[in-house]
Amino acid sequence: MEITENAALIVVDVQQGFDEMASSIPRNNPTADDNIASLIAAWQDTGRPVVFVRHDSTKPDSPLRPGYPGNDFKEYVEQRRGLGKGPELFITKTVNSAFYGTPDLDAWLKTSGITQIAIAGIQTNMCAETTARMGGNLGYDVLFALDATYTFDQEGPFGWHLTADELSRATAVTLHGGDFARVVTTEEVVTAAVAGG
């Protein structure tokens, strides 16, 4: 795997409100936060750009609503902000895709000459997947670090219920099979980033 010198890491919605959700809804991938932290460190240490995305929910009871503690980034993310050798961007959004946030992610990437992005964050099958799909549609080379994401069990139509692991596998198959992204591991990405850093 080759990581370009200016590949951007997009860290999607790593916010405290998801820890609150995890107290009542089963989630998967307990090592996701460690993997996200490893990716941020690798990107910052090699001078590559990092994009921190925060979801500002418009739902009044959401743990991600502005003004509520759950809206804040998790502490390990907040502590790393501003420490990188490379460019950094902070985006807020109210929908799933980071490409529909403020400021304009696509415009920033294009202005910076960035053609490759790596995605990590929460939730696997929601904002992380939507950002990856849109990135693929916009022509970016998208790396989706599956083990640096997590999600929750979910109810759907017709009484269907999928576990967090089932949803994550569905995301991986959809992104890979649909040519939206290359689904990879944190170790693969970090190794390639450091080797090419």
Rank of each mutant, 00 (worst) to 15 (best):
Q79R: 15
T130H: 07
Q123M: 12
P63D: 01
R169G: 10
E78I: 06
N137C: 03
V77T: 04
Y68P: 01
L167C: 09
T174S: 14
L146F: 07
P69E: 00
G70M: 00
P87M: 02
F73G: 01
F73V: 02
D153N: 14
F152S: 05
G70R: 00
K110S: 11
T92E: 12
R80H: 12
T94W: 08
A118H: 11
K110D: 12
G101V: 12
A128R: 02
Y100T: 13
T151M: 14
G113D: 04
G139S: 07
T58K: 12
D61G: 08
R80I: 09
I122D: 09
M134Q: 13
F90M: 14
I122R: 04
P103E: 01
L89A: 04
K110G: 03
A170G: 12
T163M: 06
L143R: 14
D147C: 06
S62F: 10
Y150G: 03
S62G: 06
I91L: 03
R80N: 10
E129W: 00
A164F: 09
T171V: 09
K110R: 15
V142A: 04
G113V: 02
K110F: 11
H161G: 05
G135K: 04
Y140V: 06
F144K: 02
N137A: 02
K93N: 09
S57V: 08
V173D: 10
A172P: 11
K59Y: 15
R65F: 12
L105T: 13
D165W: 09
L89E: 05
K110V: 14
G70W: 02
L64S: 05
D141F: 04
P157V: 13
V173K: 01
G113S: 01
K74P: 00
W43V: 08
T163S: 11
L146G: 05
T174K: 01
G70Y: 02
K74Q: 14
R169I: 12
T174G: 01
Y150T: 11
A172L: 00
R48C: 08
Y68D: 11
S112R: 03
D72K: 07
V50K: 00
E129C: 08
F99P: 11
G47N: 07
L138E: 05
E166Y: 02
A120K: 07
G70C: 05
T171I: 05
T163Y: 00
K85H: 14
T131Q: 09
V142K: 03
L146W: 08
A172H: 08
M126S: 14
Q123N: 13
T163N: 06
A164K: 02
G67C: 02
